[in-house]
């Protein structure tokens, strides 16, 4: 009982309060980077890192930030963290960083981050904020990975760049569904996930 209480901020966002499909935050990047699995995972790691660190920093400063300028302060903290992530990614994996193009920069305007800073970090202690950041980052990541899994498998027949659909299927007339790679299908995939999730949760 006690243990589950401590880890509540970590576990809740995974399904019941999922940032993407329940709170409807951070949709932009969730849809745009999910054509392939690898960029989706890299994006998840980047967002989780930025979110957890920004949550801790804002939580540490929560008593000193004047309310009227808190949005600017939050933006500067997040922007600084994103610049670090961007530079690290360029040095470590240039190909993926090219694929993600502007979407790393757009982590600054990811609504999950601003939303969690406003709703959680401003009123809670650093450790809880850290757990909340990691939890929401992972909740966001689950959706990204599921969407990317279906889009890459059905759209290109590969996972993480490796061929999954065997060659004899293609020889017998199987074709990749080119629609899945295109942007609109990401929306419809997410809509299906929301449908199943609501059906299961029933509230």
């Amino acid at each position: 009982m006690k243990l589950s209480k401590i880890f509540e901020p970590l576990v809740n966002p995974l399904s019941r309060e999922n940032p993407v499909i329940v709170q409807v935050l951070g949709i932009c990047s969730a849809l745009a980077v999910t054509a392939k699995l690898q960029p989706a995972v890299v994006m998840t790691i980047s967002v989780t890192a930025v979110l957890a660190l920004a949550n801790v920093i804002i939580s540490l400063m929560r008593k000193t930030i004047p309310t009227s300028i808190r949005i600017i302060v939050q933006l500067v903290v997040v922007a600084a963290l994103v610049v670090i992530v961007d530079q690290v990614l360029k040095a470590w994996n240039y190909d993926v960083s090219k694929q993600l193009s502007v979407f790393i920069g757009l982590i600054i305007t990811n609504c999950i981050i601003m939303g969690r800073l406003e709703a959680f970090a401003l009123n809670n202690r650093p450790w809880d904020s850290f757990l909340d950041g990691v939890g929401n980052g992972l909740g966001y990541g689950i959706i990204l990975v599921v969407v990317a899994f279906f889009r890459e498998l059905l759209g290109s027949g590969t996972l993480w760049g490796y061929q999954i659909i065997p060659q004899w299927c293609y020889d017998n007339g199987y074709q990749n569904n080119g629609m899945m790679i295109l942007p609109p299908m990401a929306l419809i995939t997410v809509a299906c996930i929301i449908w199943f999730h609501r059906r299961k949760e029933k509230d």
């Binding site: 295109l182 609109p184 299908m185 419809i188 809509a191 449908w195 609501r198």
Partner: peptide
């Protein structure tokens, strides 16, 4: 609309269809 799709779900699907139209 089926109950679990109401609200945000159907909006996603509509946006997707509009995207296909815009293509």
């Amino acid at each position: 609309i089926p109950a679990p799709l109401r609200g945000i779900g159907i909006t996603f699907i509509i946006t997707g269809l509009m995207g296909i139209a815009f293509m």
